[in-house]
Design a binder for these strands. Structure first.
Lengths: 197, 197
DNA sequence: GCACGATATTGATCACTGTTCAATTAAAAT
DNA sequence: ATTTTAATTGAACAGTGATCAATATCGTGC
């Protein structure tokens, strides 16, 4: 066959990413297969490689889509008039990870080979999620400490990530931790206390 | 061929794990291959499957060995008369992860399929590392709060893990964080402050 | 010494994976 | 109508985890 009018290049890209994300959510990173994605949308494996160039770039596109969904989810929950916006953001972090186990975990299962560079648009997506946290932390900090918001946001992101990761991978269950979210919230409170009084 | 006198079953197991760990450290989880391990020690792929039963069990054995090394490293550094033992433990956490990138990361890259049960000896290894942290945290806590040491240890383990993971996978570099260890230590101090005064 | 049973080891075989690329098709331009 | 350009294919390749009948070796009893 040749040129097919039913999908522009852009549409095809989006179609592959959407189906890829669906399958990633279903089977997880370890069992994900590019061939299965091609089969599901009625294209051949070769077409996927023409569009994305490599398996790694396909995964990056799928993970990028997960980041898009994550950011949208985060901002939606922040717009729902919560008592504490920072607390809502952490709730949302856990919610999204637990509700999108495989897709969220794939964000960290995948690591770009050392010789490949991360696409700019992917960096932007990661940064965008951080910016949301920076903003909320800054608004919770005394104004004289506003400048420390970015560094604190990075650190608290790592803190929440660690709790969320241990909740998902079974480490917390193994250690008898019943309420990972509450533990994460306590650590955030502890960090904020440093800047109050 | 048949029985070979040069290796008992136990020795062969240890040989495979040692070489497997070596290769895991060299190539990482994604590029790890059981066939390559077999080739390196002069056995066939079939023998590896006879000894371990499955790929997953082989990985578990290798990761178990990494946990052994990790615990030994941790305790050695705690025995070196440090000013603060808790701080030494966190230093050791980062040291080991940074010095054993691929092997350490494989601990989290691998996830047991839902239908398989984690071997008891693996659970014990994970718990053993936690126990060390519980002990050091308890000794840093006012005696009236000693009972909260286990929960706090789990939470701080997750906190340090999150910082360490972001340091290794490039997230912190992407976000401009220069000193992940210092950030982790700050979060631990913040948490301990909750129980003082 | 011999034969037999128990155990260890093999590697061909299978189904699958990511990856490549000459061949083919169809649309657009001339 | 012809040529050019772009899209699509799928067979082919090298690699993977997994299986298992066949084979080789050892230990033991006779």
């Amino acid at each position: 066959m040749g040129r097919r009018s039913d999908h522009s290049r852009e549409e095809l890209r989006a179609l592959i990413v959407a189906e890829g994300h669906r399958q990633m959510a279903e089977v997880g990173f370890a069992k994900f297969s590019a061939r299965e994605v091609a089969k599901a949308i009625g294209y051949s494996i070769g077409t996927l490689y023409n569009v994305f160039g490599s398996y790694d770039q396909l995964i990056l596109a799928i993970n990028g889509h997960t980041l898009d969904l994550w950011l949208a989810d985060l901002e939606a929950k922040l717009d729902s008039l919560p008592a504490s916006r920072l607390r809502a953001a952490i709730d949302a972090y856990f919610d999204f990870a637990l509700g999108n186990r495989n897709a969220w975990t794939a964000l960290y299962d995948f690591r770009l080979p050392a010789d490949e560079v991360m696409p700019e648009d992917y960096r932007i997506k990661v940064t965008a999620i951080t910016e949301v946290v920076v903003r909320e932390i800054r608004s919770e900090l005394p104004t004289e400490h506003a400048g420390e918001a970015p560094a604190l946001a990075r650190s608290l992101l790592a803190t929440v990530h660690g709790h969320c990761y241990f909740a998902l991978n079974g480490t917390f269950a193994l250690l008898g931790e019943q309420d990972p979210l509450a533990a994460a919230l306590d650590r955030v409170d502890d960090a904020l206390a440093r800047f109050k009084s």
